[in-house]
Design a binder for these strands. Structure first.
Lengths: 184, 184
DNA sequence: AAGAACGTACAGAAAAAACTGAACGAAAAG
DNA sequence: CTTTTCGTTCAGTTTTTTCTGTACGTTCTT
């Protein structure tokens, strides 16, 4: 943090302000599926004036290095922090991705995309399966046929929705979203 | 589920197909901050051909009525299910909101909006606080002044991002988003 | 008014997730 | 080549979340 050069009063003032912000940001990071303490870690890195090592994080967070390692990896997987290379140091260094617009769209590209595609796949397969059942014997008892058709209809609707979501994610990834909602 | 009219083989076929879909949907509902079993409950309601009571859900899910009650309330709070009134029955009836586009935008309107506004508030206050510190004494030691200004800059950027996110949520709530990404 | 049916609050049990320290393997330093 | 440093794996512990049964208040039914 390199706050060492400040007087104790200055350090206290500053960390009071920062702590409130870190707390708020960290608390709301569960929207990204991130635990509170990993959210705090993110907040710490947000205010750091230089990339940090795992040991430094552990020091500041008063937590084990193991926890820092897993926390950082979570953030790394979501592209919320970046690994930084610095000649001379053989420790790994990390800093937050300060482009939060990018972080937001990456979140969708990584997490939501996966869910969307998995669900589309499963739904399409299920529809196929039902089609097979319906085709197999045209002499189906009415209640069964009706239920199958209703299920197929519902799943068809769901697929349409997921395809829409897929396109929405495209629009975010491509940056087109900024045409509709400009950054400024 | 009113599958009673079907033969055991038909019931088996159908529930095999449904179970796979429910599993997939439920698994990915953690994106909404919803537990796996509440996700399964949602899946169950998705396939139900009529609104269900808590007892029916407990029966199907093989879980306690208490759990059904809390699960349904979670889904209700997120507007993923609706309470349905049916004359004659004095039990509460629930059905899923089948308009998934609406569900998606409601999710942002409910969860993200809250986070965004809370964070903007906290950040604005913190910026104010820093402005006060900077104004208080113009004879600040350089390192402190520099750090304060850097923190202020970062938080200003964050506020701008959150304001963008706020506008994005507006666009979703208003339906403008469908101009950019049409439903079909 | 009394009894039955319903949903939920609550406290304890069970399950899941987060956290830690010790141990290990890889890679740099001596 | 040996030693040190670093990040991660893993097993065990702590903390948090989920789940359950009982008890309770409310609202219908009779």
């Amino acid at each position: 943090m390199s706050l060492d050069q400040l007087t104790p009063e200055q350090q206290a003032e500053l960390s009071k302000v920062r702590k409130r912000v870190i707390e708020a940001i960290g608390r709301n990071m569960d929207l990204y599926g991130i635990s509170l303490s990993t959210g705090h870690l993110y907040g710490l890195l947000f205010f750091a004036d230089k990339p940090m090592t795992l040991d430094e994080m552990g020091m500041e967070m008063k937590m084990s290095k193991t926890s820092m390692s897993t926390g950082v990896r979570t953030l790394l997987d979501m592209k919320m922090v970046n690994k930084v290379w610095e000649k001379g140091s053989r420790k790994d260094l990390y800093e937050v991705e300060y482009d939060w617009y990018q972080t937001f769209t990456d979140f969708f590209a990584i997490k939501w995309r996966k869910a969307v595609e998995s669900n589309i796949l499963v739904l399409r397969r299920a529809v196929e399966e039902i089609n097979k059942l319906l085709a197999l014997d045209s002499e189906l008892h009415e209640p069964f046929r009706g239920i199958l058709e209703e299920d197929r209809r519902k799943m068809g609707e769901a697929v349409k929705y997921y395809e829409w979501l897929d396109r929405l994610i495209d629009v975010m990834e491509s940056g087109e979203i900024y045409n509709l909602v400009p950054k400024e």
